[in-house]
Design a protein around this nucleic acid. Structure first.
Lengths: 160, 160
DNA sequence: GTCAAGAGGTCACTAAAATTGACTATCAAG
DNA sequence: CTTGATAGTCAATTTTAGTGACCTCTTGAC
């Protein structure tokens, strides 16, 4: 995002650096723990799974991906035994996507790795300062979401 | 990045939300200002251009993209008159990539849009709090860079 | 000097992923 | 019981990413 690189990376550049380096570290660590058959792009699904199920269309909205992309990701993850589809009793058009046992293990592993990463930053910045940073990041993310609420075309994969 | 989405998005998810929504807002605004022939992925080049030129290989390192990707992006941007290649006098293997006049206009437009976006967040959080947030984000980005310094394979396009 | 190792960049090819459009089934409102 | 919208899938196309080979040139060792 267009800084002249003369010293002051903008919000977008920083977000990109954080996203991609976190993503790499996460998936490297996951692979070492045996989850070596998933890629960062599957994060669009894995990052939003819930034990009580979630619809593909909601994954599409949350991750900013086309529903077709979610469909193929869920296909892949189903084949790899991370998720399963079950009909939604409340709406016969819909299917709910649930994590399998392996999916749950992955979610826990990923959460643990992310805690480690964030702990490292908390140690570097100070716990209080990091908490303050993360709260601000949450607010910025929320505000940005609103700002672009008008347009709705997907952009890219989500971090996972 | 695997939160159970029960209330606490992790650093990766938040970074992704910020990146993609900023990216969309930026490129929508750029398109409205006449820069409608570039896509977010070209940001891997545009975000790192310098008036004194930069090498393709350095763009690859900075953006985390394969050098072949940078090559095609520069091809495209050269065709669209945003950049031009000139031989590097210091190394006859290398070429330096410079912004053209149009490229400079794009860079200024993008910088202005990003200032507007960041100003909006600064208004929402308070100028001081936002400055503190951004400083923390810079540090987190820097720390993450170090953490993944061992592995070096590209991951995704950079924000732009 | 000149030779080996490696960096900078491009080309050609293959694989993966995003994007589009159409289509079925279902729901929800009137 | 019609109309319009939503959930999901299929199929086909276009874009983009990833690999390997290749040539030029630089660097450092001899």
């Amino acid at each position: 995002m267009s800084k002249h690189h003369t010293g002051d990376p903008d919000l977008g550049v920083l977000a990109a650096q954080v996203l991609f380096s976190v993503q790499r570290e996460l998936f490297t660590a996951l692979a070492e723990q045996g989850f070596d058959d998933i890629q960062p792009r599957t994060g669009a699904v894995l990052a939003y799974l819930r034990t009580d199920g979630i619809r593909a269309s909601e994954l599409a909205r949350a991750s900013g991906q086309h529903k077709q992309v979610i469909g193929t990701l869920v296909d892949d993850l189903e084949r790899l035994d991370y998720v399963e589809r079950k009909p939604d009793p409340a709406d016969r058009r819909a299917k709910l996507i649930y994590p399998t046992e392996r999916g749950l293990l992955q979610m826990e592993a990923a959460a643990s790795i992310m805690r480690t990463i964030e702990q490292r930053h908390a140690n570097a910045l100070g716990a209080q300062e990091y908490a303050r940073f993360k709260e601000a990041l949450r607010r910025v993310a929320g505000l940005q979401r609103e700002a672009r609420a008008d347009s709705q075309a997907p952009e890219h994969g989500q971090g996972g």
